[in-house]
Simulated assay, not measured.
Amino acid sequence: MEFIIDTVQKTFELGKKIGKMAKPSDIFCLTGDLGTGKTHITKGIAKGLGINENITSPTFNIVNEYHSGRLTLYHFDVYRVSEPDEIEAIGFDEYIFGDGVSVIEWANYIEELIPNEYVHINISKMPEISENHRKITIKYFGDKYSYLKELEKC
Rank of each mutant, 00 (worst) to 15 (best):
I123M: 00
V101W: 08
T11H: 00
V63S: 02
K47A: 10
N61C: 04
E94P: 10
I104W: 06
K149I: 09
N122A: 08
T137C: 08
G35I: 09
T137K: 13
D77S: 08
M1N: 03
M21V: 10
G37T: 01
T31L: 06
E53T: 01
E128P: 04
T36N: 02
A22N: 03
E128I: 12
Y66H: 02
P115R: 05
S82L: 13
D6L: 06
E13N: 12
E111N: 11
G37S: 00
H133N: 10
S124F: 05
F76V: 13
M1S: 06
D26F: 03
V119P: 03
K10R: 14
A46K: 09
G50K: 02
L113M: 04
T56F: 09
E112T: 11
F92R: 01
G35D: 09
E150Y: 12
G98P: 14
F60P: 07
Y140I: 00
D93Q: 10
E88I: 15
F60W: 07
G91E: 09
Y66K: 06
A107I: 05
L30N: 04
G48V: 05
K139C: 13
V101E: 12
E117N: 15
S25R: 04
N116I: 09
S57M: 07
F28Q: 03
A22T: 07
K43C: 04
I55G: 01
P58H: 01
K17W: 09
P127N: 14
Y118W: 06
S124Q: 13
S57G: 10
G69L: 04
G142F: 07
T42R: 08
I5W: 01
Y74L: 13
G15M: 04
Y79N: 01
N54K: 14
N132Q: 09
K10E: 15
E131L: 09
V63Q: 02
E53N: 10
A107Y: 08
F3V: 04
V8F: 11
W106N: 06
T39A: 01
T56L: 14
E150N: 14
E128V: 11
W106D: 00
S130V: 13
K135M: 11
S68W: 00
M126N: 01
T56W: 02
I55K: 07
T31N: 12
E131K: 09
H120M: 12
F12H: 09
G37Y: 01
K144G: 08
G48T: 05
E53P: 02
T36Y: 02
D33G: 11
Q9D: 12
Y95F: 15
V8W: 03
F76W: 10
N132S: 14
D99L: 14
K139A: 11
V119M: 00
D85H: 05
I41S: 07
T36P: 02
T72M: 12
G91Q: 05
I18F: 00
K47P: 00
D85S: 12
H67W: 11
E150M: 11
H67L: 11
T59P: 08
T31M: 08
Y95L: 15
G19T: 02
I123C: 01
G98T: 13
S82I: 11
S146G: 02
R80H: 04
L71Q: 10
L148D: 08
K20L: 12
R70K: 15
G35Q: 07
N132A: 10
K139M: 13
E83W: 05
C29F: 04
G91S: 08
G50V: 01
E128Y: 14
